[in-house]
């Protein structure tokens, strides 16, 4: 069994909507191991994005705890959470969120610069990562000159370039056609295998479930089942 990367202990998240409380997550407990390749699935409003927010240190639980390698995120200051994200988490978004004025190379370089690294020290790594996602010949192009699939490849390279322990991918295939989705998911699977970074998808896309090794289904803020590819299934 792999070492635990993320632990959620009886996590609840309530939002105030007007005078009423809305329960986004209700008593969620979960463990994610190193190198996991899994997804949160469920309908809109089931709590997928809230769960990604909590794991990514973008939000705090109302009750319960989120632990990253045994460190409780709720005890961290805003600056510490920023450092946690900077050093450990890679993000992939449905709409890619590439910077339009930067080239492919510069977009991939961007998180390393935020980490305080100098371009001269990381140039080779950035070029390797761009090549790894199959865009070596598009290095100097701007996002506007790329297709949706190519943009998502840049986003994957950007998420992986700083060698994070965890990648959070929110609906990464939602804007792509079947062929591009397949290519992206195969690429992510390959990179997960090669780089050992855990990947957590949040998705509606049934196609994603064919590639992942674990599927956690959320309904109304609770885990309805947690299914693993090896046949283990935990119903709650």
């Amino acid at each position: 069994m792999s070492e635990t990367l993320i632990t959620l202990e009886r996590v609840c998240k309530l939002y105030q909507v007007g005078e009423e409380n809305f329960t986004a997550l209700n008593d969620v407990s979960l463990e994610v191991g190193n190198g996991a390749f899994m997804s949160f699935v469920g309908p809109s409003g089931s709590g997928k994005t809230t769960l990604l927010n909590l794991i990514g240190g973008l939000d705090r639980p109302t009750t319960g705890s989120v632990l990253f390698k045994g460190r409780r995120l709720e005890n961290m200051s805003r600056e510490e959470l920023a450092a946690y994200r900077r050093e450990n988490i890679g993000f992939i978004f449905q709409t890619y969120n590439l910077l339009p004025v930067y080239s492919v190379y510069e977009n991939v370089l961007f998180p390393l610069i935020l980490n305080g690294q100098k371009e001269s020290q990381v140039r080779k790594r950035v070029e390797e990562m761009v090549a790894k996602v199959g865009l070596a010949d598009q290095m100097n192009k701007k996002p506007a000159q790329l297709s949706g699939g190519q943009c998502q490849r840049v986003a994957i390279a950007r998420a992986l370039v700083k060698d994070p322990m965890l990648i959070l991918a929110d609906e990464p295939t939602a804007n792509l056609d079947s062929e591009n989705s397949r290519q992206i998911l195969e690429l992510m699977q390959e990179l997960n295998h090669e780089y050992k970074a855990a990947v957590i998808f949040s998705t509606h896309d049934e196609r994603v479930t064919r590639y992942i090794r674990r599927e956690v289904r959320l309904e109304d803020g609770s885990i309805s089942w947690d299914k693993r590819r090896n046949g283990t299934e935990i119903e709650t």
Binding site: G56, L58, R78, E79, A82, A83, Y84, R85, R86, E87, I89, F91, N97, L99, F110, P111, L114
Partner: peptide, 14 residues
């Protein structure tokens, strides 16, 4: 707006 959000999400302190 997107760039700022991205930078915050990527862990750049405010």
């Amino acid at each position: 707006y997107g760039e700022m959000g991205l930078r915050l999400a990527f862990g750049e302190p405010h």
